[in-house]
Design a protein around this nucleic acid. Structure first.
Lengths: 273, 273
DNA sequence: CGCGAGCTTGATGCCGATCAATGCATGTGG
DNA sequence: CCACATGCATTGATCGGCATCAAGCTCGCG
């Protein structure tokens, strides 16, 4: 579990300890009868180190403080537990604060499809708005924490703040664009291209969050990757092995080191041979 | 081209003439200098026969009249022309009034993927909100007409009317849910299931619009269907032929008659053999 | 009438699925 | 501490569905 992590903290594993960006921002609170104590779960967008990635992008101090009143609670989800499930009544969106999730839809006959993996700063539950019920399962792939955003409050507040409204619309639109990208992948790419695209996307998102872009720990199984990419787990495994043979990656179970980022990138676009 | 169409108008081809629901609602307008004339292009959500399918769902008389001020123009798009293209600046959404569109994304190396087909009442352009630029091409598959919805105005008005806000959010959310369904299809279904799902979906949407659910005219080529379903055109063609041999369909080029809707449906779910 | 875009159908081959066995890491109880 | 169980990953052998390549066919249209 222990990862090389220098004093400056290029991090591979968020659980290895609090880096400068991912610390939980414990806040000292005055509690009359007990003096000062540490309150690790103070919910506050205004203090959140993810606010540049999440719903509050581009909002003013004032607006952030109003957001704090809306996003009043957090929820902890243990690894393997569901945040919500198909058919659950929809009432809130969730912003991932720490941890990692997968979203799955399934067909009548039990086949299921991972539709996405979500990490810190990303919004979960958008699927529920249309029908007042969730249409997919959201499952924590590691112990996680989310901020609860009551949808009614979000509606109300975004009628007041056009910045919030706009950012929310942007997030939904980008989800649609992302989905279109996955369709392109599923509809027209071959196994190697799919896995390469997946890895490039993952490292990019991790980099945005201050993690290393050359080493990562997969939070999901080969089967989950396969489900997302429309492949069987054996194919995912074989493709990892091939990438290793080709000198693109070093693969040790879920620990991946990227040795040739350009080579990987070139697989995604059409620069083969 | 001529289709059986009774007086009550179970319609197969919207171009065969105006049924009760699809008529263009010409409005008599007072024009001072000329007396009464026919104005076929009066833009008005309040009169539109698609208002139960489109953005104005559930809105009051007052609100509809405000909507009329927002949706002030229409645009005609000839078959084969693009409504917008990847990279175009985003300024408006478009509601399909008549006709049929496809949306395509493409990868660096030129492969492209049809991400959806849109018909009357459906909203186009949602992809552009996130980045202020369109991320896909939208191409008319037949002569079409769209209502132009300036996005700024929609934002403004939906801050005022929570019903409009809510309906807009619903539409975006449903697009996300639809995309997840396509991912499931692309990631886990076989050719026959894909084509069956496609046909079931298409007929359902046509039925909602007052068309026959047992006969339809495809507005897209085999290649476009294949692109949408992640198959080659030959496979689409063979699968159509197989469905015909199995007595599920009658296929004559783009004219499809559904002979065994239940059988088709059972292919979509997992009730094979 | 003849052209061309789109559709159908056949023959063949390949990519990834499937089936099966082994390897590896972690955890548990004796 | 070892024996064993369990879950996940790797690797090999074989199979099958769909892609690919290659003719014809159909129909609308100039």
């Amino acid at each position: 579990m222990s990862q090389k992590r220098g004093r400056e903290g290029i991090r591979v594993d968020p659980h290895a300890g609090g880096g400068p960006m991912m610390s939980d921002n414990p806040v000292k609170m005055e509690v009359p009868s007990q003096g000062i104590r540490l309150e690790p779960f103070k919910v506050a967008c205004s203090n959140c180190n993810l606010r540049e990635l999440c719903l509050p992008v581009g909002m003013s101090r004032d607006q952030l403080e109003r957001l704090d009143t809306m996003v009043a609670t957090r929820r902890t989800v243990a690894r393997g537990d569901t945040l919500f499930r198909v058919g659950d009544a929809f009432s809130s969106l969730y912003a991932v604060r720490t941890g990692f999730f997968k979203s799955c839809v399934s067909s009548e006959d039990g086949r299921d499809q991972v539709t996405g993996f979500q990490m810190a700063g990303e919004l979960l539950g958008l699927d529920g708005i249309g029908s007042e019920r969730h249409t997919c399962d959201s499952i924590a792939l590691e112990d996680s924490q989310v901020c609860v955003i009551p949808y009614q409050d979000l509606e109300t507040l975004s009628r007041e703040f056009s910045d919030l409204q706009r950012q929310f619309h942007r997030i939904m639109s980008r989800e649609i664009v992302r989905d279109h990208g996955v369709m392109l992948l599923l509809g027209s790419m071959r196994a190697e291209e799919r896995l390469a695209a997946f890895l490039v996307n993952l490292t990019q998102r991790l980099k945005t969050r201050g993690f290393s872009e050359s080493a990562l720990i997969l939070r999901m199984t080969r089967e989950e990757i396969g489900s997302y990419l429309g492949l069987k787990l054996e194919t995912v495994s074989r493709t990892f092995s091939k990438f290793q043979d080709d000198g693109l990656l070093e693969v040790k179970q879920r620990h991946i080191r990227i040795l040739d980022a350009a080579g990987l990138q070139s697989l995604v676009n059409g620069t083969p041979c």
